[in-house]
Amino acid sequence: MQRPKKETTVSNGPHRIVFANEKGGTGKSTTAVHVAVALAYQGARVATIDLDSRQRTMHRYLENRTETQRRRQIALPGAQSVVYGGDNTDELDALTEQMAQHADFIIFDTPGRDDPMARHVAMGADTLVTPLNDSFVDFDLIGQVDAETFRVRRLSFYAELIWEARKKRAMATIRDARREMDWVVVRNRTGYTEARNQRRIDQALGELSKRVGFRIASGLSERVIYRELFPSGLTLLDKGHLGELGTSHLVARQELRTLVAGLNLPMPAPNGQMAMTGVE
């Protein structure tokens, strides 16, 4: 039987969640927006910084949400949102500190490519979320497998980068009482993977997770509803504002709740600290 973890608290600033993947098309921005809104629904103050100044999907989604509130004259939980398109880490850090003054969580959405600013915020993440589609094309981002056995042959450059960052962060945690970095690989769109291939990916992810220390969480399936909600900025959590939902949409809502629970994020406690709760 699982036992509840003893509650602990930390108070060294807002929790930084970084959604990062050097490959596009993995549902990164969609996942980031829905996590932001889910946290806001739980009473957290959420700020977001979109580092993809070209597409700015997360920022546009939240802008659409604000416009829908104005148009319908309704109030919805949401998040502060800004876009940063510069290349100066000091400037980005200053913006982050400014946003942090009134936030329990800061969520960064990064471009689907190798980007210096994305690397910078990933190094400072409390929770690093890497969404992957269930395919070996996406798996190649974090590790390379043998063509015959599908066993992991070696880490990718990206995985080695995060591994080194986590080691440095662990030393800082001991020295400066900082949080350790929690790396979570989120498996999106699993329903479209052939069963045998999915077993191979299960095996490879399990093997690699033991080597580099990431956790694996269930993500969001491929659903048209996510694209349809973008213009309004609404999410599956906005009950009463979506009209009649079919069974598949209710299943999708539960997927989102499972994802947020799987991230095991600290929620604000009444004393202003962050309470960590969960199960062993």
Score class of each variant (00 low, 15 high):
residue 12 N to Q: 09
residue 13 G to N: 09
residue 13 G to F: 04
residue 13 G to Y: 06
residue 15 H to Y: 10
residue 16 R to N: 07
residue 31 T to H: 06
residue 32 A to Y: 09
residue 39 L to M: 10
residue 41 Y to F: 10
residue 49 I to E: 08
residue 55 Q to E: 14
residue 58 M to I: 12
residue 60 R to L: 12
residue 66 T to F: 13
residue 67 E to K: 15
residue 71 R to D: 15
residue 73 Q to W: 08
residue 75 A to L: 10
residue 82 V to W: 14
residue 83 V to S: 14
residue 86 G to V: 12
residue 94 A to Q: 15
residue 97 E to Q: 15
residue 98 Q to E: 15
residue 108 F to Y: 15
residue 111 P to F: 08
residue 118 A to L: 11
residue 118 A to S: 15
residue 121 V to W: 12
residue 124 G to V: 05
residue 127 T to N: 10
residue 131 P to N: 01
residue 137 V to H: 02
residue 139 F to H: 04
residue 141 L to W: 03
residue 142 I to H: 05
residue 151 R to K: 00
residue 163 W to E: 06
residue 173 T to D: 05
residue 173 T to H: 09
residue 179 R to F: 03
residue 184 V to K: 07
residue 185 V to Y: 02
residue 186 V to W: 06
residue 186 V to M: 03
residue 187 R to S: 04
residue 188 N to G: 03
residue 190 T to G: 01
residue 195 A to Q: 07
residue 199 R to V: 00
residue 205 L to D: 02
residue 205 L to G: 04
residue 209 S to T: 00
residue 211 R to A: 03
residue 212 V to A: 02
residue 213 G to R: 01
residue 214 F to L: 03
residue 215 R to L: 00
residue 218 S to W: 02
residue 218 S to N: 08
residue 219 G to L: 04
residue 220 L to N: 05
residue 224 V to F: 06
residue 231 P to M: 12
residue 238 D to G: 11
residue 246 G to D: 13
residue 246 G to A: 07
residue 249 H to R: 09
residue 253 R to S: 06
residue 254 Q to H: 10
residue 256 L to N: 14
residue 258 T to R: 11
residue 268 P to F: 01
residue 268 P to Q: 05
residue 269 A to Q: 01
residue 269 A to R: 01
residue 270 P to C: 00
residue 275 A to S: 07
residue 278 G to K: 08
residue 280 E to Y: 06
